[in-house]
Amino acid sequence: MEKLRKHIEEIVAVTDEEFAYIQTFFSTKRVKKHQYLIQDGDQANFEYLILSGIFRMFYLDSDGKEHIVQFAGENWWMADYQAYFKERKATLHITCMEDAEILCLTLQGRETLAAEMHKMEHFFRAKLTNGYIAQQRRIISLLSGNPQQRYEEFAQLYPHLIQQIPKKYIAEYLGVSRETLSRLYSANKNS
């Protein structure tokens, strides 16, 4: 739980007593590579904080084509937020890409923490705001950036993920073919 405290204290300071209370709302879970946290149609009961490992969130269209919405690594939060906050069934899939450890937080726990501790309300709002900004940046990049620009932005923002995630998934995330990604990767490496 020390990772959780450090993560929270990047935004707000908490006392030992406050943290002892905060941690009671979280449960720890170990996840194996290829294991799903959630699939389309499941109840989205948790928001997840990744302590270690990498996850892939994706949508399957009616043709069975996978569209990657997000990757999440250490200290990132992840959920099918539409399902989580609206207490509906999931429309997204979240799968583990390497053995991982996560913390799970229910919506009720999140709401209780936010209502009882202004510090945690501020923390959650800051995390959601940062997530929203990242999603907006991604949408704009997909709408207006060419493949080279999208690759360079991804490499700049997430240099550790370039090495850890299979190229096939990075290509899907960027909306390019595997061959195009290989050319972009080679061109970037040689420059």
Rank of each mutant, 00 (worst) to 15 (best):
T129Q: 12
F85I: 05
F26L: 06
W77T: 09
R110Q: 12
Y48E: 01
L181P: 07
G109F: 02
M117C: 08
H160M: 12
E9T: 07
N146K: 13
I50F: 05
Y158A: 07
I94C: 01
M120S: 06
L60C: 11
M1H: 08
L105E: 09
Y84N: 02
Y185C: 04
M57A: 14
I22Y: 13
M117Y: 09
F19R: 02
E152N: 14
Q135M: 13
Y81M: 04
A114E: 14
K189Q: 14
R183Y: 12
H122C: 06
E152V: 02
R88C: 05
V176D: 10
R110Y: 05
H122A: 07
T112Q: 12
S144R: 10
S186H: 15
F46G: 00
N188H: 14
E121I: 02
Q82V: 12
M1Y: 04
E17C: 00
R30S: 14
W76F: 12
Q35F: 00
R138L: 10
L181G: 00
K189L: 11
Y151H: 10
I22V: 10
L60Q: 13
N45A: 10
A134F: 04
L157E: 13
E152Y: 08
V12D: 01
W76S: 12
R110M: 10
L37Y: 00
Y185K: 13
G53C: 12
L49Y: 09
P159C: 05
L113P: 03
H122P: 00
R178Y: 13
R30L: 08
Q156T: 13
M1Q: 10
A90M: 04
L174K: 01
T129V: 09
Q70K: 15
S191N: 15
Q108E: 14
I133M: 06
K86A: 15
Y36I: 04
L128C: 02
K32Y: 13
E47Y: 08
V176R: 09
I68P: 06
F123D: 04
A83T: 00
M57F: 02
L174A: 10
K86Y: 06
E74I: 04
S62R: 15
K33P: 01
L4H: 12
A72V: 03
G73H: 05
L142V: 04
R150F: 11
I54R: 00
R5V: 02
M120K: 07
R137M: 07
R150T: 10
R30V: 06
I38D: 02
R30M: 09
I133D: 01
M97E: 15
F58I: 10
A13E: 08
F71K: 01
R88P: 00
Y169C: 04
E47R: 14
R56V: 04
P166N: 10
Y173I: 07
A100H: 13
R183A: 05
F55R: 08
L128P: 00
F19S: 03
Q156A: 14
Q136D: 04
Y169S: 06
A83Q: 03
H34A: 13
I11H: 01
R110K: 15
E2A: 11
I140Y: 11
A13V: 03
A171T: 02
K3Y: 07
N45E: 11
I133W: 02
E101V: 02
L103D: 03
N188D: 13
A155W: 13
D42H: 13
N188V: 03
K119W: 03
F55N: 00
Q82A: 13
E2M: 11
T28M: 06
